[in-house]
Design a binder for these strands. Sequence first.
DNA 1: TTGTAGGCGTTATCAC
DNA 2: GTGATAACGCCTACAA
Lengths: 344, 344
Amino acid sequence: MADGPTITTIAERAGVSIASVSRVLNGLPTRQETVRKVMAAAEELGYVRNAVARSLKSRRTHQVAFAMADVGNPAYLAMLREIQPVLKAAGYRLVLHSTDAVVADEVDVLHSLGERYVDGLIMVPLRVTEAHLRTLSAARAPVVIIGSVPDGTPVDNVRADSRTGVRLALDHLHALGRRRIALVNGPLDTVPGAARGAAYREALAGLGLPYDESLVQIGDFYRKDGARAVAELLARVPDLDALMCANDLIALGALDVLRAAGKRVPDDVAVVGMDDTDLAAASWPALTSVSLGSAERGRAAAELLLDRFQHGDREPRLITVPPRLVVRASTAGEGRTHREGGES
Amino acid sequence: MADGPTITTIAERAGVSIASVSRVLNGLPTRQETVRKVMAAAEELGYVRNAVARSLKSRRTHQVAFAMADVGNPAYLAMLREIQPVLKAAGYRLVLHSTDAVVADEVDVLHSLGERYVDGLIMVPLRVTEAHLRTLSAARAPVVIIGSVPDGTPVDNVRADSRTGVRLALDHLHALGRRRIALVNGPLDTVPGAARGAAYREALAGLGLPYDESLVQIGDFYRKDGARAVAELLARVPDLDALMCANDLIALGALDVLRAAGKRVPDDVAVVGMDDTDLAAASWPALTSVSLGSAERGRAAAELLLDRFQHGDREPRLITVPPRLVVRASTAGEGRTHREGGES
DNA sequence: TTGTAGGCGTTATCAC
DNA sequence: GTGATAACGCCTACAA
């Protein structure tokens, strides 16, 4: 693993100056003979450009950072899967940050842009605090935020439309004749939690259904929390006929509990998840889920950032990705009703 | 977004030399008064170290690359989730490469180590070709390979033990009284495909069961391929009583087809997956699966690499992670038998 | 067309 | 202790 050759090594070997080597390597006009000598030397020595030195000089790293709470969350993963190839095609590498939704960590990432190890950042904050906004305004590189920021924040922003998403789901459930539709939500101080809570209330109003506090249960965004929340709901409102879950993991937890309680899905209780992750299709019964376009949001964010690299001074842009309801067995029986335990 | 301050800016502001600034910033012995002035100036100006310049000088980037075929594959994802925090704790950033299992791309990643944008690489090649080995031996930075490389290859290596893994599964099925155990495998020219095929044959022999070619079906490693493969198997061998699937996705496809065919799982056909991904727990019936320790392998690889950074000259090391059988409903009834369609 | 020289922002080695 | 100064590897005027 001998120390790699530099343009100096090559210059010596080829009997030319380092400037000529650099020119050849960058395809600048050079005499044929010189080109040949340099290429030959580079080839023999197995020369590879030093990206660090190059970055120092050019002030561009051709790296982009992506920061989200947890790679394990399929919604973030879907974004990542779209972002990666877009960046790769444009010649950028991807630096991955996992913040565990810790505000301090997210702020750190923003702050670390000052180290200039990336040309830009795509971030998905679970919460957007004052600290975020302060650091954001002082960020030393372009940032794209996936998720809602306060209006007027001077940042490229990609949003989901959970309001419409929840409405699609509730319209669907309503059309199926469901009237006692519960909401299993995540923490209200998170961006998605707050949005989905408000959307639920609004969608009910749109359908002319009353808002009933006892039909709302809040836990966290994981399967276990979903299970616990639904258990409480069932105890409180035994005759509910539909569950709107704030994400797919919660919905899986809901299925667990319904199954154990001997409730048929969707006959007794219809279940809708959110994010339309791989898990939705994997579960049984397969989960009807509101796709908030994670993949599209990822792609849009990557494209916004790349565009920003070329037009550093354009106005901040806001892109809202439309939701889509993906109907599967957990709401649309089709005779493929699922049933478990209980009275045979 | 004014151009960031450098140590020169700070030196001027504090009225000292850049050398002193550097010393203070690096905690080298310095007079109190100087420290104070420098810190004050740095604070006021919002100074952040330039990582690129630092790397150029120190020849260390504090970045590590992780290259696998596809982030969407839960097995790789599990590795990533373990690798990330280990590296982070050690002060390293993670650069993510997705190679789509294209040999040329993987070789490119190895080659690009010459650019010195990372201090090392963790790679999970789906196939290991001559080209891999050649480039590997000329790699300009330490590499850890997850997956089997030819004996004697001078590289840190972390392996799964699919032989034992398959044996655990077949022993389990055998103990449940299953005798017509089919194998649904992936391509034989992949590392896992070849290993699992051989392991299946060997495990059967160990159980005194005959190897029956018609019980083996090969597709690709995805859900659809699994479904197609199992459909063919069922047509050919209607009375098979167990399916050993080469990964969880294949197993999900198997469940789809069995359900459609009116076969009860596990009563009629027991199903075992491999990799023990999140999907295994999400499916219904939940999938018994052989964990090949993806998470542990990721962790081991990260630790090997970090260790290599400190002991650049030690002997290459080989770590084999033991498999574990995770029994769930798809083999162990517990009265939670699942049943679908067909004769009511 | 080619070479010399300066600088990107740090760290580190010298004298002072 | 502190301050010039020389690298690190590359790019790029500018001069020849």
